[in-house]
């Protein structure tokens, strides 16, 4: 993925993941100022997508995680993307 495509890719992932049943909100990926809500990095052909989310307790967390990862891959149009999630809040 070229640098110029990254912001659009992030927006697409954010919108797709936010729409998943059981996802309440996407948090910034880290507490450092200006951290993005979707972190994308390509290394050696592997596209890594990092997310930090709040989930809804009415949906089992495993199901939310799998659905969010699938949504991210679809938004990136990359079946081989590695999706790494942190569930930081459940309510």
């Amino acid at each position: 993925m070229t640098d110029s495509l990254i912001p659009a890719a992030r927006d697409a992932v954010e919108a797709a993941v936010a729409a998943v049943l059981g996802v309440r909100v996407l948090y910034p990926v880290s507490v450092l100022p200006g951290a993005e809500r979707v972190r994308l990095a390509e290394r050696g052909g592997v596209l890594r997508c990092e997310l930090r989310i709040a989930t809804d307790a009415s949906v089992p967390v495993g199901r939310v995680v799998l659905a969010a990862a699938a949504a991210a891959r679809r938004a990136l149009d990359r079946d081989d993307a590695l999706v790494v999630l942190e569930v930081a809040s459940i309510e």
């Binding site: 967390v61 495993g62 995680v65 590695l82 942190e86 569930v87 459940i90 309510e91």
Partner: peptide, 21 residues
């Protein structure tokens, strides 16, 4: 860490999230 996830997906639940729940 969530166990038994398919290759290509890694996930953790924080202790803070579980405390909040």
């Amino acid at each position: 860490a969530l166990p038994d996830l398919p290759v290509g997906t890694d996930a953790v639940v924080t202790e803070g999230a579980l405390r909040g729940l």
